[in-house]
Design a protein around this nucleic acid. Structure first.
Ligand SMILES: [Mn+2]
Ligand SMILES: [Mn+2]
Ligand SMILES: [Zn+2]
Ligand SMILES: [Zn+2]
Lengths: 153, 153
DNA sequence: TGTTAGTTAGCAAGACTTGCAAATTAGAAC
DNA sequence: GTTCTAATTTGCAAGTCTTGCTAACTAACA
């Protein structure tokens, strides 16, 4: 995603207005690597601008997505995620805490459907599922069995 | 997914009943490579068994998923897909017609997050987006520009 | 300062899925 | 075949996420 300032210019050049609500949302997304839901952003936005509506958050997010400034990610948890990082990258999802982390995958772009040679690929997405380091270490601390294994080292 | 007969045995051994509704759904899923939604299956089921409820379809699908007989796929189109193929495979999604095709991907299992070496990967999923051969040829037939290119050959 | 096209907020409604409880029934026991 | 009962099915209400609609509001420009 471009910087808030650049987005401002871009919006104005499209005959759109630069409202405080939009500016706030731009700033909340800038360098945001948490892959927030609309509700997440609404919660944070509300703290800084009481009265802002969830509807406006959705609206602005959809506009940014249409402009290609935002990537929509749906990992099947009943809620869309918004990713201001539109560079080529992939995701690792923790099945314990749900956190989504950006990852780069060497060779991902070269992947091809083994069969289906007639399918015209325009995009490849890789999703890793597993446990993030936080959840992994927490699991070890709490598991008697693993505790034993760990203490043997 | 196991065969309808095997599923029947499995259900009975769990103290569950073998209802006509379940049998029908088993048969509709058997060798089904269309990645149907619950609504899809409900439509087909209704034709053969008027009166079957969408609720029952969902219920049976969830049971099968819990038993590991079914894979749940969410590709962010506002509806879960059900896949009786639980072998290691991936998917190619046509952005025109929405069809989902099974694909095998050489080297997918070997993919690793380039960064995030602390993430414990338990599963890797690859999704190709693009155009299926049907939609691709249809696009060519209808595009004057591409028509020209094609006829030059 | 006035004008107005674009925007926001609030609520209703749509799409998909699940919770619930009454009615039904498969499977077992007699 | 009849009876019994725990499991299942249905139909509808409700939950979650997202969008449609529109009256009220306001940024931008003259
Ligand atoms: Mn990302
Ligand atoms: Mn599949
Ligand atoms: Zn985690
Ligand atoms: Zn297609």
């Amino acid at each position: 995603m471009h910087s808030p300032a650049e987005l401002a210019t871009q919006f104005r050049s499209m005959g759109r207005k630069l409202t405080p609500q939009r500016q706030l949302i731009f700033s909340l997304l800038h360098n945001n690597e948490t892959h927030p839901t609309a509700e997440n952003l609404y919660g944070i936005a509300s703290a800084q601008m009481p009265g802002i509506s969830l509807r406006t958050v959705y609206q602005t997010l959809n506009e940014l997505a249409e402009m290609g400034e935002l990537q929509l990610i749906d990992l099947g948890e009943g809620g869309m995620r918004f990713d201001p990082n539109v560079d080529d990258h992939h995701h690792a999802v923790c099945s314990s805490c749900g956190k989504i982390r950006d990852v780069h995958v060497k060779g991902a772009a070269a992947l091809k459907p083994n069969d289906a040679s007639d399918f015209m690929v325009s995009d490849v997405g890789v999703v890793f599922r597993g446990k993030c380091s936080d959840c992994e270490s927490r699991a070890v601390k709490r598991s008697p069995v693993l505790q034993a294994k760990v203490s043997k080292k």
